[in-house]
């Protein structure tokens, strides 16, 4: 929650694209479950996700949690809507005070690496959230000590995360190719454990994975976003036809968002040739095949930034 200090959220193109992709799926899921959601997130200073979900999903009960070093006055000043409740404390303490028995859309976009308190947050959320609730977590996917930025050894990792650690953890699970898979495994198994214990007390809910995304902001951190929806016995996620979206991902392997580096003229060129005249396009030798592929994956959601006078 300190990253807005480094870069204005609104001009991070990959983050922006991710948000729009999520929105496409959320529109269907929230539509399916009907009724009003409350949104819980880390608004930061720009409240980009708040604005988006208010306007597109019609969520008008919202809570932002702020544990960074901004003053409450600064947060209040930047909050776009008066109905946004502000909690100035860590996520776990704040979640303690929020009514989680309401149907909720929760996006905990932690700016740091995986930490133990994130699992406390999962326990609190999944002990109470009702059917239809959506949980999304984003964090840096590298497995490092948050204080020193040094990578864990398997022993240190087990010491830190205890029984949350996968039984068969090996050194390879820390590599860039696998670290997000390790995180996913830990998150999913903890979520399922909490839900299983809860099923002894009330009717059973299942977690259906919706998001499993990795991306890297231009020269920035390697990020991982994971999330899903809570469904009861009668919920069949296939009814939502989410397979329409190629970034909908119920699988183990993460979907990677990549942005092509293109000029405005190049973008216009691709748009004029896309799908039907791609072979011709590539023969022009202006656009590489790699950039074209990246463009096709994300162009519906990609932002365009222009310099304007304010």
């Amino acid at each position: 929650m300190n990253s807005p200090k480094k870069l204005n959220y609104e001009v991070r193109p990959v983050k922006f694209t991710e948000r729009k992709m999520m929105l496409a799926i959320l529109q269907r899921v929230c539509g399916y479950f009907g009724n009003k959601y409350q949104y819980i997130g880390f608004g930061g200073l720009t409240f980009t996700d708040f604005k988006l979900f208010h306007k597109e999903l019609h969520v008008d009960e919202m809570t932002t949690i702020e544990a960074g070093s901004f003053s409450k006055e600064k947060i209040e000043f930047n909050s776009p809507y008066s109905f946004i409740k502000i909690f100035m404390e860590g996520s776990t303490s704040a979640l303690n005070k929020i009514d989680l028995k309401k149907k909720s859309l929760v996006w905990l976009d932690y700016d740091g690496v995986l930490d133990d308190y994130m699992f406390d947050d999962i326990t609190l959320l999944f002990s109470k959230l009702p059917e239809g609730s959506i949980y999304v977590i984003s964090c840096n996917k590298e497995l490092k000590f948050s204080e020193t930025n040094t990578e864990y050894t398997t022993e240190q990792f087990k010491e830190k995360f205890g029984s949350l650690v996968p039984f068969d953890l090996s050194n390879e699970d820390f590599s860039g190719l696998n670290n997000h898979k390790t995180i996913r495994k830990m998150l999913l198994s903890h979520i399922q454990k909490v839900l299983k214990e809860r099923s002894g007390i009330e009717s059973e809910l299942n977690f259906h994975q919706l998001f499993n995304v990795i991306y890297r902001e231009n020269r920035g951190a390697n990020m991982f976003t994971y999330g899903g929806v809570l469904g009861g016995d009668n919920f069949n996620p296939e009814e939502l036809s989410l397979v329409d979206f190629d970034f909908f991902n119920p699988e183990d392997n993460a979907y990677k968002i990549e942005m092509p580096n293109l000029t405005r003229k190049e973008v216009e060129l691709i748009n004029s040739k896309i799908h039907l005249k791609e072979k011709e396009l590539l023969e022009m030798n202006v656009i590489s095949e790699n950039d074209l592929e990246k463009y096709k994956k994300s162009y519906k959601y990609m932002p365009h930034f222009y310099d304007i006078r304010v």
């Binding site: 404390e89 860590g90 776990t92 303490s93 979640l95 303690n96 133990d116 308190y117 406390d120 947050d121 326990t123 609190l124 002990s127 909490v194 214990e197 809860r198 002894g200 007390i201």
Partner: peptide, 24 residues
Amino acid sequence: SELYKKVLFFMREAMSSVLGFLKE
């Protein structure tokens, strides 16, 4: 016991709450 396992669910929730604060 089955009863105690169910009780433990709430104990864990309570601990997650209180220990979350103590971690801060």
